[in-house]
Design a protein around this nucleic acid. Structure first.
Lengths: 123, 123
DNA sequence: TTAGCTGCAAAGAGTTTGCTGGGAG
DNA sequence: CTCCCAGCAAACTCTTTGCAGCTAA
């Protein structure tokens, strides 16, 4: 079952991956079609096994759905992404929920800037 | 100059707008082409007069670049968006900057859930 | 004149979908 | 025997681009 291959790639990855990343990775082991990757990913997302986040580059990134909630520092030069655990948004979300009655169920947060590598190289 | 029409629509809007919103709005007054809208928007963004944010629906939303920084509560049912001023992200960003050396220059934050209207209607 | 705007049509990227055949239970 | 899975090609959506004509300073 190709689903397992796809799921495992996500599971074993340290960062979030694009559909293409996953396609390339799975393709090293078995034959698979891009449509299948997309369809499977949508399945996994619907089953809450995988989270999908659309970033400012308009590309969807997938990662394992887990409790430890991550956000990324995305470099606008090299497009690398460092995860950060520092998420106090839930507090803010709760506050907003109480004050406005809007039932917040999720949030996305992206930090943009220039990573240390690119800063060095620029000098 | 069509740029002025486009800029004014953004300036006078209470919420962020898509290129299509802007196109429809401007079209009520003058003839304009969608390409022109996109081109003009990109110009305005490059000149830092307008901010562009890509949301989870993969659509770019435009709003006036201003100091008072807003984030939106986006309803996953009716897709309406309520602005909220409650942004303490800058503090977090500064902390991350210090601790990791990653030079954060901007961030995006989106809250998703169900708005009060949709909550009511569901009952 | 020189540069920057425009419209139009076509291209592009990422993603989805319809149809069909194939494999698992 | 069913039903879900997979491949392929085509379609879709939002956005960008090339080209040619136009406009303004």
């Amino acid at each position: 079952m190709k689903k397992d291959y796809i799921y495992n790639v996500i599971k074993n990855s340290q960062t979030s991956l694009t559909a293409e990343d996953i396609y390339n990775n799975v393709s090293q082991n078995i034959d698979v079609n891009l449509s299948t990757v997309y369809r499977t990913l949508n399945n996994l997302v619907n089953k809450n096994l995988v989270n999908k986040v659309v970033r400012q580059d308009k590309i969807a990134y997938y990662e394992l759905a887990q409790d430890t909630h991550k956000h990324y520092l995305i470099c606008d030069k090299c497009n690398c992404a460092f995860p950060t655990q520092m998420c106090t948004i839930d507090k803010i979300a709760n506050k907003i929920k109480k004050e406005t009655g809007f039932n917040i169920t999720s949030h996305t947060l992206e930090f943009h800037g220039i990573c240390q590598n690119c800063l060095k190289n620029a000098k």
